[in-house]
Design a protein around this nucleic acid. Sequence first.
DNA 1: CTCGTGATGTTATCTCATAACACACCATCA
DNA 2: TGATGGTGTGTTATGAGATAACATCACGAG
Lengths: 136, 136
Amino acid sequence: MAEAGERMTAPRRRVLSLLLETGEPVKAYDLIARFGEDGQAAKPPTVYRALEFLERLGMAHRIASISAYVACSGSAANGSAPHAAAFLICDCCGATREIAGPDQGSIDAAAAGAGYVIARTTIEAHGLCLACREAG
Amino acid sequence: MAEAGERMTAPRRRVLSLLLETGEPVKAYDLIARFGEDGQAAKPPTVYRALEFLERLGMAHRIASISAYVACSGSAANGSAPHAAAFLICDCCGATREIAGPDQGSIDAAAAGAGYVIARTTIEAHGLCLACREAG
DNA sequence: CTCGTGATGTTATCTCATAACACACCATCA
DNA sequence: TGATGGTGTGTTATGAGATAACATCACGAG
Ligand SMILES: [Zn+2]
Ligand SMILES: [Zn+2]
Ligand SMILES: [Zn+2]
Ligand SMILES: [Zn+2]
């Protein structure tokens, strides 16, 4: 997680705050647009740097299959270690749930057979949520 | 998989052929550049449409975390159904292995608790391959 | 042959993400 | 206190990835 000397600075706090307010996955450029409290947009690197930091600390996740970012809904939001994230994503309405992924040990075991040592794993499961199925 | 009336046409065959030749994950714009047998590049939609088709049939996978595409190394290359793909990706050299993912049933079970019905799942595990670890 | 569906070609544009560089901040230590 | 080094920020510009929209073509069914 955090290297010695790394700080939770204002722009990082702001981006985390926006992620937590939203609750759902957010596009990076939405964060950029909403960054300034006065309605002023940020410059892209400001937000992308903050996202990189938050993800490295396990406070946020990138959901690559939809190019979006979300605050971690697990205990990592409190500052615990990064973890293998798993997401259920509704392809109809976009509703996303973070669920407990498989044990890191089982991933490591599967990877060991191929000679890999795994640092980070993301699982992205696409389908339909209950509401969208009922809506037909 | 394929809807009635869908055909394996020339551009689709060409993109699949490029994926199979390469063996490793390929960037979409690499495929675009290499599309023409005479060195002429394709237009982006030509390749993206073929990739969408191949992925839908389970013959290729998109690896979202590295924005790349790869031919399926499982039996789906022969035309079987799409499946939950799992990848081991070396962050150093880019070497990628497709491994057997968890049983679809276990994914469905985990999703059911949240009310989701899952259609497609991708697992992307990042780390270091054996060669890169030995190289230090 | 005619029609409907699926597929292609083409242009243009959109979204997503990073490189590069100068400067500011902050703790530490002489 | 002021030099130093690591970390962070602001800014400009650009690179990379993907899709919208529309016209036209191919093909099998009836
Ligand atoms: Zn999480
Ligand atoms: Zn939904
Ligand atoms: Zn596969
Ligand atoms: Zn490697």
